[in-house]
Structure formats: C-alpha cells, structure tokens
Design a protein around this nucleic acid. Structure first.
Length: 418
RNA sequence: GUGAGUGUAGCUCAGCCGGUUAGAGCAUCUGACUGUGGCUCAGAGGGUCGGGGGUUCGAAUCCCCUCACUCACCCCA
C-alpha cells in the first residue's frame, strides 16, 4: 500500500462516525442546560502559548509537541490540549468583561507526538469545558456534576471518580519540601524512574506503580494535610456540595496532573475496563492562568473528555444501524426517468431515497436493496409508468402495498411502515 | 526514547520440519429464479505471502536487515 495515515493518526469512517455524532449531540444537549456555549479555537497556535501555560519542564512541552517553523519563521505548535488556547482567546477577546461565570465548551482534535498504544493516538479528540470568573467551590461542584451527567448520558457505567486538591502557589511548595524531606534518606529503595523524578517532579513518585516504590512511600505526607486555610476551605466546600449534588467520588490524594497550571481542585475519571490508558476524562482548576496570559486575575476551572477513551466503552451498546427509507428498482429507460424525478420529490420530503443506477436484473436490484438495509423497495417498470401505479414492498415485514406513483401517497405509506 | 509481540485476499485466519498453478470462512458481484430481497446451491473477481537481501535445483516456509502495526514502559484524554 502506497499511502496510509501517519503513525498514531486514524480515519474515522461510517458506521463508527455515527457513534461520534451521537456522543457530540448528547454532550451539546447537556452543555446547553448548564449554559455552556460552543467556542471554536484554532488548531495551530504560537508555541510559547503552550510553553508558558503547560510548563517548560512538563513532558508535553519537553518531548510531545508538534512544533515547527511556519514560512514566516515563527515557531508554531499544533495544540496538545485545549485550555491554553482557550485562555488565550479569553484574554484576547476581553471575555472577562462579560458577567461571570463565562462558560464555554469545545470539541476537536489535539496533537501529541507520543508513541501510540491502546486508546492513545497522536491526533486525538477531546470534548472540553471551561468556566471562568468564579472562585467558589459551588462552580467546581456544578461543572463536575455536569461532567458526570455527560458521561452517564452517553451510557458509561462503572467509572471511578477521583478527586483531590493540589493546593495553590502558596501551599504547594511547602508540601513539596515536606515530601522531599520524607523521601530523601530512602531514595535508593526507589526505582530509577522515581530517583529521576525526585528532582524533576517529586509528586509523581506517589503515582509510581512499581511495588517496591509503593511500599517505600508508605507514610509519606499527603497534599491534603498541607493545604493552606484558603485551599482547605475550598476543598471542604467542594466535597460538601458534591455530596449535596449526589456525585459519587473518592479522594485520591496522590492524583497527579501533568500540567503545571492546575491549582486546588484536580480530578480524573477512570475506567478499569480500558487497559493501561484508563483516564477517560480529567480536569481541574487553574486560578492563575488568565493572569499569566496578561489578563486580570481570574479564576477558572475546566475538564476534557477523551473521545477515543470513551468510544470503546460504549461501542457495543451504541450500535447504530441505518438504511435508506426507500430503494427504487427500475426496469427500462422510461422507468429510470420516472424514478429520478420521483426520488427528488421524496427527498424534498426528507426521505432518504436511493435508486438503482445500472440495468441489472430485478433480482439483483432487490438483493441490493436488501443489502443496503432499505426499509422499503418499489419497482418501477413500463406498466407502472403507464398506469401510474406501483407496488411498494416493506422489506421488514415483506408486505406489499399498492400506491399511485406519486410522492405524497408514497410518503404516507413509507412513514406508516416505519 | 526503551522493551516485547505480530505482518498471507476487503475482514478473520489456516498453510510454515523448504517441493507442482497459495487455501478456508465471511464480505463483494453474478447465476439457478427472463419482473421481487433474506435461505440454499453453483460460479466469478480479488494476493508483489509487508519490503530488500541471503542460503538452495527450488523459499509464504530457513537466515540477516529493514519497514509497518500492536501492546507495554515513560507520560497522558
């Protein structure tokens, strides 16, 4: 094969595309009821937008970005995630001048140059939401509740909802120090990855799956115990409101986020039936990011759902089957002329109509009507054209009904049958 | 970037101790049934056996290299 998609990229074809559309429709409907409006952002941005927000030492920036020079010599990057672009747009269009909270959602592709594996692609799709301008945990609870509504609306079951607070720029350094102090003298009992993480991102040691590391980190200090008064109050408030909204959740203190901009609330939704890449959605609060982009200090919170992660979970239950409302079999030249015109009239009445295009036998045409899943088939030949009457066959029940060769009556029969 | 596994028809796979023209099921198309689908039967089309090199009289099969895919690590939606 000469040409094929790039590694980690994929075509999405029918009938799978119907599942995608279905998920998008359900999501839009939930967003609408919570007052979230769609925003469409460019896929390509200036590189420093991501470097500044995601963090220079994060894995995404260090090794996963699709970065290149455009013809003007500028460094540009295919977006690896949505929030940075969104905040850029929020500041650029002075959206902070509108009444808070400002609520937006987006859906579209993201790009990360990673080694592909199960449920992980280099171009992957996210449905994301961002809410700006409210610091109160009531908003956190609401957006999290909305996320669970979307996921359950899509039909996902048995998900784990993990929640924590990772503090703010005031209390997180204290925790980081406490953790490093705890780890310092027992570092050689950790794996080589963890020893590297010690300087780079010590919080991630808490997430390591190596058994020795798990036992060695027993008794390590937890973020939650180091939250400042403000962060603690926020976190307690969030848990209270989540209880009121009956959003089931578990506290996972060592939940680690890969992006530098998160503050306070961080959460992740996972599925055990996925394999190694099991996060289906994740998000958190980013109260310093607008500031960072040159806007007025504005709190924000958001999440993103990974399309490729949720589709395998619902593929079996969401099996769309579609076929034409009517397939027209034609015998002879006059019949084709009649059929073409008739098809147009029926399509104008919102029916999906297919006609046969070659002079194959009636049997072969019927077979085709059946194969493509037509709900009804009509045969038009010389007699039918002359008498303006034809037999329309219901392909599910097999019953035949006589009808005048005329759009209105045909529509009535077809709609009654389906 | 690291490690392991797999590459034969559109799809799922058999064939692999080397041996005539590379198979099956499903799918597609046609016919049996000259104007009525599904079931059945018959037939047809569709392959550089991932690519290159080597061993050999002879390679899908054995050896080397390479590419692609998959899974896992790292990390993440």
């Amino acid at each position: 094969m000469k040409y094929k998609t790039l590694k980690g990229f994929q075509d999405i074809l029918p009938p799978d595309i119907l599942i995608w559309q279905n998920i998008e429709t359900i999501s839009r409907d939930v967003f609408r009821t919570y007052g979230y409006q769609e925003i469409r952002l460019p896929i390509l941005e200036s590189t420093d937008i991501f470097v500044r927000s995601i963090g220079e030492t994060s894995d995404i920036v260090e090794k996963e970005m699709y970065t290149f020079q455009d013809k003007g010599g500028r460094s540009v990057t295919l977006r690896p995630e949505g929030t940075a672009s969104f905040v850029r747009a929020y500041v650029e269009h002075h959206l902070y001048n509108h009444p808070a909270p400002q609520k937006y959602y987006y859906m579209g592709p993201m790009f990360r140059y990673e080694r592909p594996q199960a449920y992980r692609y280099r171009q992957f799709y996210q449905i994301g939401a961002e809410a700006m301008g409210v610091e109160d945990p009531k908003l956190d609870a609401e957006i999290i509740s909305m996320l669970t509504k979307i996921l359950s609306g899509i039909g996902l079951k048995e998900l784990n909802f993990e929640l924590t607070s990772i503090g703010c720029k005031n209390c997180r350094p204290d925790y980081r120090d406490a953790l490093k102090n705890f780890l310092r003298d027992k570092l050689n009992s950790f794996c080589s990855d963890c020893q590297r993480r010690y300087d780079l991102n010590p919080l991630r040691i808490l997430d390591c799956k190596v058994p020795d590391c798990i036992s060695s980190r027993q008794g390590a200090p937890q973020v939650i115990d180091y939250l400042c008064a403000d962060c603690k109050k926020h976190f307690d408030g969030l848990r209270h409101y989540l209880d009121i909204l009956k959003v089931p959740h578990s506290i996972t203190p060592n939940l680690v986020r890969g992006l530098d901009y998160y503050t306070k609330t961080a959460f992740e939704v996972t599925s055990e039936s996925l394999g190694s890449q099991k996060a289906v959605a994740a998000g958190g609060r980013y109260d310093g990011l607008v500031d960072e982009f040159g806007g007025p200090p504005t709190p924000g919170i958001g999440f993103a759902i990974g399309m490729e992660r949720i589709i395998p979970l619902i593929k079996d239950s969401m099996k769309p089957s579609e076929g034409p409302d009517l397939f027209i079999c034609c015998m002879g030249q006059y019949a084709y002329e009649e059929a073409l015109a008739l098809a147009e009239q029926l399509r104008a009445r919102r029916l999906w109509v297919e006609i046969n295009y070659d002079d194959s036998s009636l049997k072969s045409q019927m077979r085709k009507g059946n194969r493509i899943g037509a709900k009804h088939v009509i045969v038009i030949g010389e007699d039918e054209v002359r008498n303006e009457v034809a037999v329309i066959k219901d392909m599910i029940t097999g019953t035949e009904t006589q009808s005048r060769l005329e759009a209105q009556e045909l529509v009535k029969i077809i709609k009654a049958g389906s």
